[in-house]
Every structure is written in C-alpha cells, then in structure tokens.
C-alpha cells in the first residue's frame, strides 16, 4: 500500500467525519411573522390558614397546572407545580418544593431539581417558606410560565438564532416571577417560541386592529 493511498483513505475518513459533524447543525429558519408577546399570569389571592394555604385564581391555565413560587432566605427562587381545581390551589404542610433557581438581581443562575425518582434529595417545605416570605416581605406568588420546568421557548430560539446573544431571555420580574423577555430588534419573528410554548404563555402579539 503506497503512502498516497493512505492519505486518500485518510482524507475520505476525515470528510465523512466532517459531514456527520456539520450535518448535525440545525438549519437557520427565518421568516417574517408576528412578534411574540408574554401573557400575564392570572390574578391570585393567598388565604393563609393554620395548616394550609388556599390560593384563589382569576383564571385557569392551558394545562391545568401552575407554578407556586416563593423566595427563600438565600434569595433564591423556590417553586412547585400544583394542579388547579375549581380555580384554586391548596398548599398543605408537607408539600415540598420541586426546584430551586439561583437568582442574581434580574439574572438567573443554575437550577436544581429537588427530587430523584420518588424521593426528595432536599426537602424545602413550601408552606413554611411561604409563611416566612409573608413575614419577611419576600416575593411570592404564582406564575403561568413553567420555567424552569420548561425551556421550550429558549430552545426554539436557540435552534433558529445561532448567536449566543438571544432575542429571548428568561428574566426576573418585579414581583419575582421568572418569565421570557423579548428584545424586538433582534427577534427574527420566526414564531417558533409561540408554537413551541406548551403553556400558551407566549402568544402572537396582537395588532392594534385586533385589540
């Protein structure tokens, strides 16, 4: 076998590897459409009882679940996914948080999930934390966006926009909710976040004549 043949064979292998590698990249898909809009969470009223907290909602959500959140003594965001029944949610003693998100001002850090299979790695009682949040005036409430459980909008955005500076970022609101925020100038209006959002929080921006 001559060295030239070796080189040729090697080049073929390199070529195949490169085709496989670049074949994985998602194509860029942009078309003009509507800007996305984030719908506000339903109004909520927390009624604190001795062993349970009842949250009355003004409306339900698309999938019948909503996130109840509160901030903890470490300044982080603790939340749990709760089912809605007759426009109300009940938080009992013994209900533990499903996840924790590190929060730095408006920015968010790492997320950790509290459960492994059917048991908790770390138990953070939501009832006690909510009572403490009221006393110490930390933010608490409900949010219709399922972040950090769901990150479909950012995933959709990443599949279209190849730069790291995305037009869609998750941000902390004044009331402590974590929701997507759009930068219109950078948004390609591809509609992916609207289609992919499973909770219906991101919708098509209504035009003046549609309002």
């Amino acid at each position: 076998m001559t060295p030239n043949r070796y080189i040729n064979y090697f080049l073929i292998i390199v070529l195949i590897t490169l085709v496989i590698y670049f074949g994985r990249k998602v194509y860029r898909e942009i078309f003009p459409g509507d800007y996305p809009m984030v719908t506000p969470t339903a109004e909520s009223k927390f009624i604190f009882g001795e062993n349970e907290i009842i949250v009355k909602l003004s409306a339900t959500t698309k999938n019948g679940n909503i996130i109840v959140y509160t901030y903890g003594p470490d300044g982080n965001f603790y939340g749990m996914l709760k089912p809605i029944k007759d426009l109300s949610i009940t938080i009992r003693k013994g209900d533990n948080a499903d996840f924790m998100v590190q929060v730095y001002g408006r920015e968010i850090g790492e997320t950790s999930f509290m459960k492994k299979m059917d048991r908790y790695i770390r138990k953070v009682g939501m009832y006690d934390l909510l009572i403490e949040a009221v006393e110490k005036k930390w933010n608490y409430g409900v949010q219709n966006c399922l972040y950090p459980i769901c990150t479909r909008c950012t995933d959709g955005c990443k599949s279209v926009v190849s730069t790291s500076n995305l037009p869609l970022v998750m941000s902390v609101m004044d009331n402590g909710e974590i929701k997507p925020v759009f930068r219109k100038g950078r948004c390609p209006r591809c509609g992916k976040c609207i289609i992919w959002c499973p909770s219906g929080v991101i919708q098509k921006e209504k035009q003046p004549w549609e309002k």
């Binding site: 076998m1 064979y9 090697f10 292998i13 590897t17 496989i20 590698y21 994985r24």
Partner: peptide
C-alpha cells in the same frame, strides 16, 4: 489495513462527537 483504520476512526469519532 484500511478497514481497521476506518473502524477505529469511526468509533473514536463517535465517542468524541456523540452524533
């Protein structure tokens, strides 16, 4: 020789790239 080279390259590439 080529088959062996191809086999090893494909496996190493699969491990590194994880296609």
């Amino acid at each position: 020789t080529f088959s062996l080279l191809l086999f090893v390259t494909v496996i190493v590439a699969t491990i590194i790239i994880k296609p």
